[in-house]
Simulated assay, not measured.
Amino acid sequence: MTATEAATSTDALLQVRGLRVSFRGKGRRAPRTEVLKGVSFDVRPGETLGLVGESGSGKTTIGRAVLGLVPVRSGTITFAGERIEQAPAARRRQLSRDLQVVFQDPYTSLNPSLTIGDTLAEPLLGHGIGAKEARGRVGELLARVHLPADAAARLPREFSGGQRQRVAIARALALRPRLVICDEPVSALDLTTRRTVLDLLLEIQEQTGIAYLFVTHDLSVVRFMSHRVAVIHHGDIVEAGDAHTVTTTPQHEYTRALMLSAPVADVPEQRRRRQTAHGTLDS
């Protein structure tokens, strides 16, 4: 399946078409650097689209463009039938009911001076939900991410990285969104904690029908999480299709190189695979 074929869907929750983003270089005469070069894809209701590529490929910029955090030079972003690529700040605040994000670093994404309860109540109160109802919702959110009710009275520093990421997930769920952008949500965690958080995200999706745009550099993680996969390289989607096909029989040499760079238990084999992958990724 080509990237164009994978992008055509009549029931998409999120549609991205011809997305281009560029940034100015340092200095007044420095040329612009094009980070995204006409990217197109869909995310359907209730599914996970894995967006995978190495550092600098443009994958995080896609998520930030959807969230309105970077300016779009051209192309369209349509969410639930509404064009949002140029949405003003007031509309963006309204859109946060349906469109949320979980960032990579659980240590910096939470305000260290707020209790967990205040952190979770903040978006609820900001959208006009009363204090009593907000307190009840905080308890529901903690239960959903398998944290005890007394966690509401504690500060982020009292929790491990995995627990903090659960809090970040609970905060993203507070307004009952339809789509969550997960930007490398487990890359800062150890392997055991990583699996626990991934299982939690899958459980939440099964219970709520939420959709994820899952941004990662790890093909094994995207295979575990995703219904469909889009592989991005130097600002272009080079391969897209269902997760099983892309991660077991990749067609593009860049996707094959990503597979070779994934860790394996055999150390000499790992060294050989990474040397092979390094030559491909640099080309």
Rank of each mutant, 00 (worst) to 15 (best):
V70C: 06
L69P: 15
T60R: 05
A262Q: 14
L147Y: 05
L36G: 10
H146R: 13
R20S: 13
T2K: 05
T78K: 09
R28V: 04
M259G: 10
G53E: 12
V229P: 01
H233Y: 14
A87F: 14
K37C: 02
G81M: 08
A170G: 09
G27P: 10
S261T: 10
A134S: 12
L213I: 14
G162N: 01
E184S: 13
T193P: 00
A174M: 13
V267C: 06
A262N: 15
V231C: 08
E85R: 08
G136K: 11
G56L: 07
I181K: 13
D118V: 02
T247I: 04
S187C: 04
L19P: 03
M1L: 05
T48C: 03
I62N: 07
A90Y: 13
A188D: 01
V186Q: 01
F224K: 13
L189G: 03
S220E: 11
K26C: 03
R135K: 15
P268V: 09
S113Y: 03
G38V: 07
L125A: 14
L155Q: 11
A168Y: 00
R271E: 05
S160C: 01
G139H: 13
R24Q: 05
G50L: 07
G130M: 05
L260K: 13
V215E: 09
A151H: 11
Q251C: 01
A277N: 02
T192S: 15
K59G: 09
D42H: 10
V35E: 11
R256V: 07
A277P: 09
L13W: 14
I84A: 09
S109Y: 03
R271T: 02
H227Y: 10
P185F: 04
R272D: 15
I116Y: 01
L125E: 13
T76H: 08
R157Q: 11
G38H: 05
Q104G: 02
D98H: 15
I232D: 01
L141H: 08
S22K: 08
V221H: 01
V167D: 00
A151E: 00
F159A: 00
A89W: 14
S9V: 07
R223H: 11
R28Q: 07
V39F: 05
G117L: 02
I62C: 07
L49T: 07
M1A: 03
V167W: 00
D183S: 06
V102T: 00
A172C: 12
A153K: 11
R154M: 00
T192M: 10
G53V: 10
R135D: 04
T48R: 02
L14S: 05
T119L: 08
